[in-house]
Amino acid sequence: MKFLADGTHLAIIAAKFSCGAPRAGAEKGPEAIMQTGVFQEIATKANLAISFDMLAAEPAPADQTEAKEKEEERLGIGLGLKRPREVSAAVQRVSSAVYRHARRGRFVLTVGGDHSIGAGTVTGTAKALRDRFAGQQQQRQQELGVLWIDAHADINTPETSRSGRFHGMPVAFASGLAPSPQRGVFDWLEPSHRINLRRFVYIGLRDVDEAEKELIARHQVKAFTMEDVNRLGIDKIMDAALDHLGPDTPIHASYDIDSLDPEWAPSTGFPVPAGLSLEEGVRVARRLHESGNLIALDLVEINPDIAPSLLDLTVNAGCRLIKTALGVE
């Protein structure tokens, strides 16, 4: 892959967080994937060295009671977010871990966890690219492109969100649409972390809030819904997506397992019917690999506590997406 300085090393980050979602369980997703042995298979078939960063939630401070959280939110410390300090700290840890590997030119695979971590993964990659190519003539051309494969747009701001849950806001925070950080909550985000929504593409949308639709239209974000996929076919969608990002753009793909139809991925927090088939999801992954521009990948929102009798179906789908994106299937 032409944008990787160290193409022999796969950095895997297990982001065991679910603090941005309304229910627990997604923090167990990384372990469910790892137990399959998929990473050993990838290492053998692709002849890669693999490193693991295991990130998990830290115990809450003794004074971090529910009453204190509500008081923080009332005062604006958390910008209206649920569990503001915990979410900010978790996302920062993910961003720092991704940055550390991406700065060295390694492919970074992050397994979640709820999709809140996407605000950390893409910001870590974006900052690493800017730092790697700082001062070089091609820096502008090598600004990060993002493919967000999801049933949901995740672009609410704290003002538009009805739930206050961060897993519906990572795109807004990563792109700078959310309000300025304040008083210890997301104040680590710098302009160098930001992604450019002109180099951002959605695939698989089918459950989008009205406020999110307005934001997508206002900022001219390229978005392909499932209606588009069904009308045009996944290959034409990928042609258009890759053309929009450009042939010389490094790509970070953030794959929510709920982009797949619940027939293929039932063990997830917010399944939405009429999603991508497994073969369509695999085709997206294959086209990303074939582009030669994929430098980072997320797989999130596998929740072993939901439909546990069908967990193997969901995990196997996730493993197939990972292997295809990495070119070993």
Score class of each variant (00 low, 15 high):
Thr65Ser: 11
Ala89Thr: 08
His152Ile: 09
Val111Asp: 00
Arg104Leu: 14
Val91Met: 15
Val98Cys: 13
Arg93Cys: 07
Ser88Met: 11
Arg85Leu: 10
Val94Leu: 11
Phe133Ser: 09
Gly113Lys: 12
Lys127Arg: 15
His101Phe: 01
Ser95Asn: 13
Pro59Arg: 14
Arg83Tyr: 09
Glu143His: 12
Arg93Leu: 05
Ala89Cys: 04
Gly80Cys: 02
Lys82Tyr: 02
Lys68Pro: 00
Ala102Gln: 14
Gln142Val: 06
Ala134Ile: 04
Ile117His: 09
Arg100Val: 00
Arg83Leu: 06
Phe107Ser: 02
Ala89Asn: 09
Trp148Pro: 10
Gly145Asn: 10
Gln92Ser: 08
Gln64Lys: 10
Leu81Pro: 03
Gln139Lys: 07
Gln138Met: 08
Lys82Met: 04
Gln141Trp: 03
Thr121Met: 14
Leu144Asn: 11
Ser95Lys: 08
Lys127Asp: 04
Val94Ser: 13
Thr121Gly: 12
Ala126His: 06
Glu86Arg: 04
Ala102Met: 14
Leu79Pro: 06
Arg104Trp: 01
Arg132Ala: 00
Val98Gly: 03
Leu75Phe: 01
Lys127Ala: 15
Leu147Pro: 07
Arg132Cys: 10
Gln136Thr: 15
Gly118Tyr: 04
Ile149Cys: 13
Asp131Phe: 01
Gly124Cys: 06
Arg83Phe: 05
Leu109Ala: 12
Ala119Thr: 08
Ser88Phe: 04
Ala90Lys: 04
Gly80Phe: 02
Ser116Gly: 10
Ala119Gly: 15
Arg100Tyr: 07
Gly124Asp: 08
Val87Trp: 01
Tyr99Trp: 11
Thr125Arg: 05
Ala67Thr: 13
Gln136Phe: 09
Glu143Ser: 14
Arg74Thr: 11
Ser88Trp: 00
Ala134Gln: 11
Val98Pro: 05
